[in-house]
Nucleic acid binder design. Structure first.
Length: 870
DNA sequence: GCAAGGTC
């Protein structure tokens, strides 16, 4: 490139802080003519100006920023309203990317600046999202100026040398990275919107969800990140519920000497068999001299933590201060905005070699509390310094979280600001410190052939523990023992204990689960957790531990019963690996989109047809509401065709609370086009079949026989009305259709007989149970044992339904008790896994566990004696 | 009114 007239280049960063920092670095040279700042259209995104030379070519640089994504993905207007279409259509519905209202000012700045420039240099974060935002910027800028020469700067830290290097070695943006994000956005939108609309419309009005006064507006959302997060909470909850305490026995030995007390632990741990433990104990008591068989002395190191990533910050703030991850991020954002800490959303847990760590320590020397520690760190004589070891994660965009400005506390800071800044500083100082050193002693003894062991620790040098007050290193001293030494134990006891269930998941546990499974990003994980609370899916106790609410449990149960693992992290993991394939170029964007959406659509259609499972699981916890008598059908809204009256919205098939069908315009109340189907119609479906005798748009009115039957007889002998859809023809006069609406006594919706209304259908009364159990057409079996739930006789029967023919199940004979359980869900000893009883039967106990009254002859004895520890 | 991902 030769010199000559300067080229005007527009530089764009992902956020204002990066635009400022990079401009600052690039304009340090005197030849830059200094750094000038002016306002853009957006009050947050300033424009920096300076001169710069790239390979001998003079440039006039303008440097501005966006604030994250410039565009959003949404459905076309006609699909935006919830009742505008059947949610299944959202798998094909047209989507568009657009710049939302609150970003229009940034868009205008970009357009205005792009028109004045020849080059566009993209300084977005160097990750997939950043690359996608880069292409959003490109789209806006090239709309304003088609001749732009487009470049990408690759940088991983805001360090002078690195920034200059990337400016001198510009590359082209990577379309594949951006494609991967396009795929994710589209899949997330379609899955999220379809399932959310489906389950909200299906369940919200059907049950009394009494946890909010305003349950009409509650949203039962589904998302590929929030649901697996809920899944972790529910799974642990079920694990706890299904835990049965088991008694075990262990032998303990202590020895008091002049130097102190030593506690020896039995090397076998514990035994579940009392007799066995008691025999061994007797042996020990009878021959109770202890002989020291081994004495080991070792130096042990306790290493300081890795440099701080977002997840670690959230986990530690939760553990040390009980701050929620969401609040932590808010406080961290404040500290970052005010310049006290570095960018708080980072996966990186290792410092770049080029980072000047000592300078950062120097800044902390004046602090009244940890200043002296910082001074010791910098003193070569003290030998406290150690180059930090990394945890192996690097997002190539941001350094680990570290202090960027000294503070001994600011006026406007809350307690939490103080705590979090202190955590960041102490963590940083710990990272560059030597590990703590301890001397550990282990003593093994033998009593009557049984081995016991005791250990003690002495801290030789605290090192990083001096500054990292949040961590300690437990351990106690033990007296001195020598090999071959013999002594009489002071106490030798046979003690019993019981196994305990695992604890509920803490916020730190939940973050670890999400991190491991790849759910969410460092910037969004706390949002997913908060969403569980906002949606009433889970609660958090004062100990920061999460339990599912009944709603959360019911939803997970429902999908689990369908056989879907939509609540597990596998779907997201699969998507993530596909995204990776797209970004590497091994799979195409369209290929992944098509396959994934096809699978998810099939899953959605299946879930819809299995919605009974969701109803059943909800019914375990919630009462049915009377807001709608035929709730599930009432909410179904299948699109028939475009409204011929307003030409704007769709005509959809719906069922009203009174059970009658209607085909109405979704533009209501603006458009009042409606066709009421006669009350005798008990089922109506939208089909693609076109009536042979008239134009598309017919709703069966041309069929004389049908019309006569429904209007005159009203007996419903042809009670399925097919509504032709997808046509453009005219709608039959709604007034005539309304006249034909026979609101009188029609066929019962349940048994399809006349003579009674559906509300009092005798089949419904007995059906309440039948729909829940598989025993329809089952044959009575022979054996009878007491019901686990009520104690009445429980009968072994054989299912005769299509899906479970031949499968055996126990079912309670009592009319009041709905207990039933598949025989193959009963394990050894009559143990029933959690959920296998309750998910399909309304067993009031709702818990698994031991079947009380399970006959002796069915129990197989298990050997739980451990004899292999030696 | 719905997702998840950026960011103020």
């Amino acid at each position: 490139m030769a010199g000559g007239r300067p080229i005007r280049a527009l530089n764009v960063a992902e956020k204002p802080s990066v635009a400022k920092a990079v401009s600052g670095i690039l304009s340090k040279n005197p030849s830059s003519g200094g750094l000038r700042v002016r306002d853009g259209r957006s009050r947050y995104n300033k424009i920096f100006e300076f001169n710069y030379t790239i390979q001998n070519q003079q440039f006039q640089m303008s440097f501005t920023s966006v604030t994250g994504h410039l565009m959003e993905l949404e459905f076309e207007e006609r699909y935006r309203k919830w009742h505008s279409c059947d949610p299944v259509q959202l798998y094909q519905a047209a989507v568009k990317k657009y710049v939302p209202e609150d970003k229009l000012d940034i868009k205008r700045t970009l357009e205005e600046e792009a028109r004045k420039c020849q080059w566009l240099i993209l300084w977005l974060d160097c990750d997939r999202e950043g690359e996608n935002i880069a292409f959003e910027v490109v789209e806006v800028c090239t709309q304003a100026n088609r001749n732009l020469n487009i470049w990408r700067a690759r940088f991983s830290a805001l360090i002078d040398r690195e920034i200059h290097y990337s400016m001198q070695h510009l590359v082209r943006p990577n379309q594949l990275f951006a494609d991967a994000v396009d795929v994710r956005q589209e899949i997330d939108l379609r899955i999220g919107a379809s399932f959310t609309r489906f389950q909200t419309m299906l369940l919200r009005d059907a049950f009394n969800l009494d946890f909010t006064s305003d349950d009409k507006n509650i949203i039962l959302s589904y998302g590929p990140c929030q649901f697996p997060t809920l899944g972790f909470v529910v799974e642990r909850f079920w694990e706890i519920q299904s835990h049965e305490p088991e008694e075990f026995w262990t032998i303990n030995c202590t020895h008091n000497s002049e130097e102190g007390i030593a506690t020896f632990n039995w090397m076998r741990g514990h035994l579940f068999d009392y007799t066995c433990a008691a025999i061994i104990y007797e042996m020990c008591v009878q021959e109770s001299t202890a002989t020291v068989t081994r004495v080991r002395q070792q130096e042990k190191l306790k290493y300081p933590p890795h440099p701080l990533s977002t997840i670690e910050l959230e986990k530690r703030a939760s553990r040390y201060f009980r701050m929620s991850s969401e609040h932590t991020m808010k406080v961290a954002e404040d500290l970052y905005q005010a310049g006290f800490i570095s960018y708080p959303r980072t996966e990186t847990d290792c410092f770049s070699e080029r980072t000047d760590l000592r300078m950062m320590v120097q800044e902390q020397q004046g602090h009244p509390v940890w200043g002296s520690y910082a001074q010791r760190l910098l003193d070569p004589e003290a030998g406290l310094w150690r180059n930090p070891s990394g945890g192996g994660h690097d997002d190539k965009a941001h350094p680990p979280i570290h202090p960027t400005k000294f503070s001994a506390g600011e006026n406007g800071w809350s307690q939490d600001h103080h705590k979090l800044y202190e955590l960041v500083v102490r963590h940083f100082l710990a990272c560059v410190s030597q590990p703590a050193v301890g001397a550990e002693t282990t003593v093994d003894i033998d009593i009557a052939g049984e081995l016991f062991s005791a250990s003690g620790r002495m801290i030789m040098a605290k090192n990083y523990l001096d500054v990292y007050r949040f961590e300690s290193w437990g351990g106690s001293m033990i007296p001195t023992y020598n090999f071959g030494q013999q002594f009489a134990p002071t106490t030798l006891t046979l003690d019993s204990g019981v196994t305990r269930p695992p604890p509920l998941l803490s916020e730190a546990d939940l973050l670890s689960c999400m991190d491991k499974a790849g759910i969410g990003t460092d910037a969004t994980m706390h949002d997913h957790i908060k969403k569980l609370l906002d949606r009433f899916y889970a609660t958090k106790d004062s100990n920061t531990r999460f339990s599912p609410t009944e709603l959360g449990e019911a939803l997970v149960m429902g999908y689990d019963d369908m056989g879907y693992e939509l609540w597990k992290p596998y779907l997201r993991a699969m998507m993530e690996s596909d995204m990776k394939a797209v970004s590497m170029g091994t799979k195409s964007k369209t290929e992944v989109l098509e396959t994934c959406l096809q699978q998810m659509k099939a899953c959605f259609v299946d879930a819809k047809s299995n919605k009974g499972k969701l109803f059943e699981s909800m019914a375990v916890f919630f009462e049915r509401s009377n807001r709608s008598s035929i709730n599930e059908q009432n909410t179904v809204a299948e699109v028939v065709r475009r409204c011929s009256l307003c030409q704007e919205s769709d005509m959809v098939l719906r069922r009203k609370p009174d059970g009658n069908f209607m085909v109405g315009c979704t533009g209501f109340p603006h458009c009042k086009n409606v066709v009421w189907l006669p009350g005798s119609v008990s089922e109506a479906v939208v089909t693609t079949n076109i009536c042979s005798s008239c134009a598309p748009g017919c709703i069966g009115g041309c069929d004389d026989i049908l019309r006569q039957l429904v209007e005159i007889c009203g007996t419903g002998s042809r009670n399925i009305s097919s509504v032709h859809g997808r046509g453009t023809g005219h709608t039959p006069s709604s007034s005539s259709a309304q006249r034909s609406n026979s609101r009188g006594q029609g066929a019962c919706l349940y048994c399809r007989q006349t003579g009674h209304s559906s509300d009092v259908c005798p089949s419904r009364v007995s059906r309440g149970r039948n729909v829940r159990s598989p025993e329809a057409d089952a044959q009575e079996g022979e054996s009878s044992i007491p019901c686990s739930s009520c104690g009445a006789p429980c009968v072994l029967r054989t299912a005769n339904t299509a899906s479970n023919r031949g499968r055996k199940f126990y079912s309670c004979r009592s009319q009041e008790c709905n207990f039933f359980v598949w025989e193959d869900n009963i394990n050894e000893g009559g143990r029933v896994a959690r959920g296998n009883i309750s998910r399909t039967a309304s067993n009031p106990s709702r818990s698994g566990g031991l079947w009380q009254g399970w006959p002796e002859w069915k129990t197989s004895k298990r050997c739980r004696i451990c004899v292999c520890n030696r």
